[in-house]
Computed example of a mutant assay.
Amino acid sequence: MKPNPVVWFEIYVQDMERARKFYETVFRCQLEPMAAPEGEASGLQMLGFPMTMEAPGAGGMLVQMADCPRPAGGPGTLVYFACTDCAVEQGRVEAAGGKVFKPKFAIGPYGHCALVIDTEGNTIGLHSMQ
C-alpha cells in the first residue's frame, strides 16, 4: 500500500439541501453538482467538495441515494477535513445545525482535531496542526 492511501470519500445524507447548507457554512465553500454515473437509476444526487486532480489529498462528495446500502448517521468510516485551525470550523458547527461531539484537542506531534456531528447524524473529524 502506498503512503496516504485515501483517494476519495463519500458522505451519505438523507436531506441533500440540509447537508449542503451545513458543509458550505462550516467550511465556507461551494459544493458543485456532479453527474450520476451512466446507467445509474434516478434518485441519486451528488454534490462535490472543491477539488483538483493536480493537488495532493482526497476529493469527495455528499451522496443522497434512494436505496443506499448504508443509511446516513450510522457507524462507519470517519473522514477528517484539513483546517488551518480546527477551532474555527468547530465554531461554525452549531450555527449550521450540527453538534460538537468532542471539542478541539491535542494529538501530540500530529496537531489537533475535533469531532463534530453533521445535520445528517454523520460524525466527521476536523484536523489542524495548530
Rank of each mutant, 00 (worst) to 15 (best):
residue 64 Q to E: 11
residue 89 E to L: 04
residue 90 Q to V: 01
residue 75 P to M: 08
residue 70 R to A: 08
residue 51 M to R: 12
residue 97 G to Q: 09
residue 101 F to D: 12
residue 51 M to E: 13
residue 87 A to H: 02
residue 72 A to C: 10
residue 81 F to I: 02
residue 82 A to I: 15
residue 86 C to A: 13
residue 104 K to L: 01
residue 73 G to N: 09
residue 43 G to L: 02
residue 86 C to D: 11
residue 97 G to M: 04
residue 103 P to V: 01
residue 89 E to C: 11
residue 77 T to E: 10
residue 51 M to F: 15
residue 69 P to N: 10
residue 88 V to D: 12
residue 99 K to C: 04
residue 96 A to V: 04
residue 44 L to T: 14
residue 91 G to T: 05
residue 97 G to I: 03
residue 95 A to Y: 07
residue 96 A to I: 06
residue 82 A to S: 15
residue 104 K to V: 11
residue 93 V to A: 03
residue 106 A to L: 03
residue 84 T to E: 13
residue 73 G to M: 06
residue 49 F to W: 04
residue 45 Q to E: 14
residue 72 A to K: 03
residue 75 P to V: 07
residue 58 A to L: 05
residue 57 G to F: 05
residue 106 A to T: 13
residue 82 A to H: 09
residue 71 P to D: 12
residue 70 R to E: 12
residue 79 V to A: 10
residue 97 G to N: 09
residue 48 G to F: 00
residue 56 P to S: 10
residue 45 Q to C: 09
residue 53 M to N: 00
residue 57 G to M: 02
residue 72 A to V: 06
residue 87 A to C: 04
residue 58 A to P: 05
residue 100 V to P: 02
residue 80 Y to Q: 10
residue 77 T to D: 12
residue 99 K to E: 13
residue 66 A to G: 11
residue 82 A to R: 14
residue 70 R to K: 10
residue 52 T to R: 15
residue 90 Q to D: 06
residue 48 G to P: 01
residue 86 C to Y: 12
residue 96 A to T: 07
residue 92 R to C: 07
residue 43 G to F: 04
residue 95 A to S: 02
residue 107 I to V: 15
residue 66 A to L: 11
residue 65 M to Q: 10
residue 101 F to W: 02
residue 90 Q to A: 15
residue 94 E to Q: 15
residue 95 A to H: 08
residue 100 V to C: 05
residue 84 T to R: 08
residue 103 P to L: 02
residue 102 K to Q: 15
residue 100 V to T: 13
residue 104 K to H: 01
residue 49 F to I: 05
residue 43 G to D: 11
residue 67 D to E: 10
residue 76 G to E: 04
residue 71 P to Y: 03
residue 101 F to Y: 09
residue 82 A to T: 13
residue 66 A to I: 00
residue 71 P to E: 15
residue 56 P to A: 06
residue 105 F to H: 07
residue 62 L to T: 00
residue 47 L to V: 06
residue 79 V to M: 06
residue 46 M to D: 01
residue 68 C to P: 00
residue 94 E to F: 04
residue 107 I to K: 14
residue 80 Y to S: 08
residue 46 M to G: 00
residue 63 V to E: 05
residue 98 G to M: 11
residue 89 E to K: 12
residue 66 A to T: 15
residue 90 Q to I: 01
residue 97 G to K: 06
residue 60 G to C: 03
residue 96 A to H: 13
residue 79 V to T: 08
residue 102 K to T: 13
residue 101 F to T: 12
residue 72 A to D: 02
residue 101 F to L: 14
residue 88 V to T: 07
residue 104 K to R: 07
residue 106 A to C: 09
residue 90 Q to G: 03
residue 94 E to K: 13
residue 52 T to W: 00
residue 68 C to R: 10
residue 74 G to E: 03
residue 102 K to F: 05
residue 92 R to M: 15
residue 69 P to S: 12
residue 86 C to W: 13
residue 63 V to A: 05
residue 94 E to L: 04
residue 107 I to P: 08
residue 103 P to S: 12
residue 43 G to C: 15
residue 95 A to G: 00
residue 92 R to V: 04
residue 50 P to M: 05
residue 90 Q to E: 08
residue 77 T to R: 01
residue 107 I to Q: 14
residue 63 V to M: 15
residue 53 M to I: 04
residue 101 F to I: 13
residue 94 E to D: 07
residue 103 P to C: 01
residue 80 Y to W: 07
residue 47 L to T: 04
residue 60 G to R: 07
residue 83 C to M: 08
residue 68 C to T: 03
residue 100 V to W: 03
residue 73 G to Q: 02
residue 73 G to S: 02
residue 54 E to H: 11
residue 61 M to Y: 11
residue 64 Q to R: 14
residue 103 P to D: 10
residue 102 K to E: 11
